[in-house]
Computed example of a mutant assay.
Amino acid sequence: MKLKKILAGLMAAVIAVGSFMVSTASAYWNQDTIDSICKKTNAPVWKNGETKTLTLVEPDIKNTGWYYSIPVSSNGTVEVNATTFDPAFVCIALVNADIYTDKTYENRYLSDSEGVTTNSTFGKAYDYGCVFGEKNGKKEVIQYEVRVCGGRDGDGTDADSYSGMVSFDVKKNNNYMLAVFSEGDSKLENRKVTLSVTYPSSSDKSSNDISELSINKITSKSYTGKAIKPSITIKDGNKKLVSGTDYTVTYKNNTKPGKATVTITGKGNYTGTKTVTFNIVPKKVRVSAKTSDTDAVLSWKKSTGAAGYEIYYSVGGGKLRKLTTVKGTKYSAAMTAAGTYKFKVRPYVRINGKKVYGQWSNTVSCK
């Protein structure tokens, strides 16, 4: 529905344990209120789909309200449904604590040009507004608010109770707080509102953004001399996406040993991109060995892209252990102990400064 522009409501808040107190001192939420809420920790979580009945107490023209953490993990909307609504003036607000800074905030009426959305089905919702802040140099909404004339006629008398819904646009992985509190005169003490709240969560089965979907991990691949294009499996919940229909795949640096890159781009009903990597390791070598006096002379052919080779050995059936690391393709190992010596070799390549190994060679024996 069209966003309504009318005079701002009168509010200011101070955090209290388990609730916050709001006086009628200034329009919308003042700086101290935002500071208090955004610094508050360990707020109880409102579980997705859960229904709660809240008592809105207003002693001495001060309003007691409630706040809950809303753990949003994907883009979408938070919906607050009032299933039972006693006559009262009620404010429903959603605060994004992740946008909090120490800067002064800007109160603003919502409009279509703001690029933010709040919708309400309350017949007597009479005020929309938001508070803007900055995150990484970009102006974003800290707090949405809708004020509801919940069953109060224009002459101040109680009207019939009724229900309604308000929804707010939200972004994934942001720390949101839902606040519900009464505003009005002391005659509205102990009024109740029963609310259910739904929001995007990790349990949601579907997303059209490729970057948010499950993609299989690609194990290391051995050098073949040709471009390596491992298969990709992408799932949207239990649905397996189809290459060419739901996404396309491109590869980069996927021939020589090193780090290869796979870029997955959404197609059809899917959008966005995701990049994954995998390692290409040198091909394993085949080792030959011969005895020269008391030495075992090992040799093998060069493995393309290998930065070096590690040689391991054992004696008389003992534990395999590292002998040395070499750059070349030949090595003479002195056999000073009695028993049969066994040797094997593996190539390696350096990726981001770390050794990544190819497969072990065959095992050779010398006496």
Results as ranks from 00 to 15, higher is better:
Ile61Cys: 07
Gly150Arg: 04
Lys171Ser: 02
Lys39Ser: 14
Val72Leu: 03
Thr329Lys: 08
Lys47Pro: 01
Pro200Phe: 06
Lys239Asp: 13
Asp127Phe: 02
Leu54Gly: 06
Ser120Cys: 11
Thr84Ser: 15
Pro200Val: 02
Gly225Glu: 05
Ser332Met: 00
Thr219Leu: 13
Asp169Trp: 04
Met177Asn: 02
Asn362His: 05
Lys4Val: 13
Tyr128Gln: 14
Ile228Gly: 04
Asn30Arg: 05
Val72Pro: 04
Lys2Asp: 08
Arg321Phe: 01
Asn96Ser: 09
Thr33Trp: 10
Lys171Phe: 00
Thr291Trp: 01
Tyr313Met: 12
Thr340Arg: 14
Gly164Asn: 03
Lys302Arg: 07
Asn30Ile: 00
Ala8His: 07
Asn190Trp: 00
Lys327Gln: 05
Gly353Cys: 13
Ser161Ile: 00
Pro347Gln: 13
Trp29Ile: 02
Val242Cys: 03
Cys366Lys: 13
Asp158Met: 04
Tyr68Ser: 11
Lys139Pro: 00
Asp293Glu: 08
Cys91Met: 11
Gly318Asn: 13
Asn190Ile: 01
Leu3Gly: 03
Gly137Gln: 04
Trp300Pro: 06
Thr363Glu: 12
Lys355Glu: 13
Lys138Met: 10
Gly129Trp: 00
Lys235Gln: 07
Lys283Cys: 04
Lys284Ala: 14
Ala179Glu: 08
Trp66Ile: 03
Thr84Lys: 15
Ala13Met: 09
Lys47Val: 01
Gly164Tyr: 01
Ala338Tyr: 05
Val315Gln: 07
Lys52Gln: 15
Tyr199Cys: 04
Lys39Pro: 03
Lys367Cys: 03
Lys256Asn: 15
